[in-house]
């Protein structure tokens, strides 16, 4: 498959990238890992005239400790997240999820920021990022703004990032000591999730004191299962209690119907997977 012709620029700073974006407007596309963009170009679903490659901007890659947050650069590869000890300690949910994302080769190219900016409702990074209450650092010509997770995902493949803006980093509140699990349901190993559930729980003396539950592919954006979170708070970390709470997983969701399952089936899956995710995260 051959993409339509485009020009290519590889700036070395964010400012240069922003300038280029400003110049080319909506004729330009940002290239991160290319794992979603290149298929789109090659299938000619999109034909930008200019591709601006972020791979030469070193400041965008890496994980750094910032007090009660981790700051993950947008160009940090999935494979970096998978192995980074700080992520393991303070944001284990991201690590649990990223292990299920595509395959080894794709994890070595694809980026954390690219996956979030792409905002595929079936993407594996959205629900964990939402559940952990990440903040999205977005740079534009007028400076940098932080967008809360709840405001970041707008619709199918649509985020709060403006046309002339770049996602530079994601600030992840530390969830040190929380149990975490990502329960992904697929038909073949290397597949986008039919439904997946991201759960982080804080268990104290057998009681769930706090829970954060995100749903993948249960609507046009990643979703928080707030009804489940509320129901879990203060409950014993037992099969029965978790089952009751998980039964509310699909409340307010609007799952799609496709070859892999209809909305009814997805709603059912969400309850089963939520129960399993929360129980595993709770160490039960």
């Amino acid at each position: 498959m051959i993409p339509a012709q485009f020009d290519y620029l590889a700036p070395t700073t964010v400012d240069e990238a922003l300038a280029a974006l400003a110049e080319h407007g909506d004729d330009a596309k940002i290239l991160a890992g290319g794992q979603s963009l290149l298929p789109v170009l090659r299938m000619r679903l999109n034909a930008p005239e200019m591709v601006i490659d972020l791979n030469k901007i070193p400041e965008l890659r890496g994980v750094r400790d910032d007090g009660d947050h981790l700051v993950i650069g947008a160009m940090t590869r999935h494979s970096d997240i998978a192995t980074d000890p700080q992520v393991g300690e303070h944001a284990a949910l991201l690590q649990k999820a990223v292990h299920h994302l595509a395959d080894e080769q794709i994890r070595h190219r694809g980026t954390f920021g690219g996956a979030l900016a792409h905002a595929d409702p079936a993407g594996d990074m959205g629900a964990p990022a939402l559940a952990l209450g990440c903040e999205f650092v977005i740079a534009g010509r007028d400076g940098v703004r932080n967008v809360a997770a709840d405001d970041f995902f707008v619709d199918l493949f649509e985020t709060a990032i403006g046309e002339d803006e770049i996602l530079t980093a994601v600030r992840v509140p530390k969830h040190t000591g929380w149990g975490a699990h990502y329960e992904k349901f697929v038909r073949v190993a290397h597949q986008w999730p039919i439904v997946a559930v991201a759960a982080a729980v804080k268990v104290d003396g057998g009681t769930i004191t706090e829970a954060r539950v995100g749903l993948t592919n249960m609507g046009s954006t990643p979703l928080r299962a707030r009804a489940v979170e509320d129901a879990l708070r203060g409950q014993p970390a037992t099969e029965d209690a978790v089952r009751d709470a998980a039964a509310r997983a699909a409340e307010g969701a609007n799952p799609p119907s496709d070859l892999n399952g209809d909305a009814e089936y997805r709603a059912h899956l969400a309850t089963v997977l939520t129960r399993r995710a929360v129980l595993t995260a709770s160490g039960v």
């Binding site: 299938m43 395959d103 073949v188 190993a189 986008w192 070859l259």
Partner: peptide, 23 residues
Amino acid sequence: VYDDSGTLVSGSFTDYLLPTTAD
């Protein structure tokens, strides 16, 4: 799979599920 207008819905490996060694 075809849709009602005769378009192949499973027209890429995202929808036509080929197993890999991992399966």
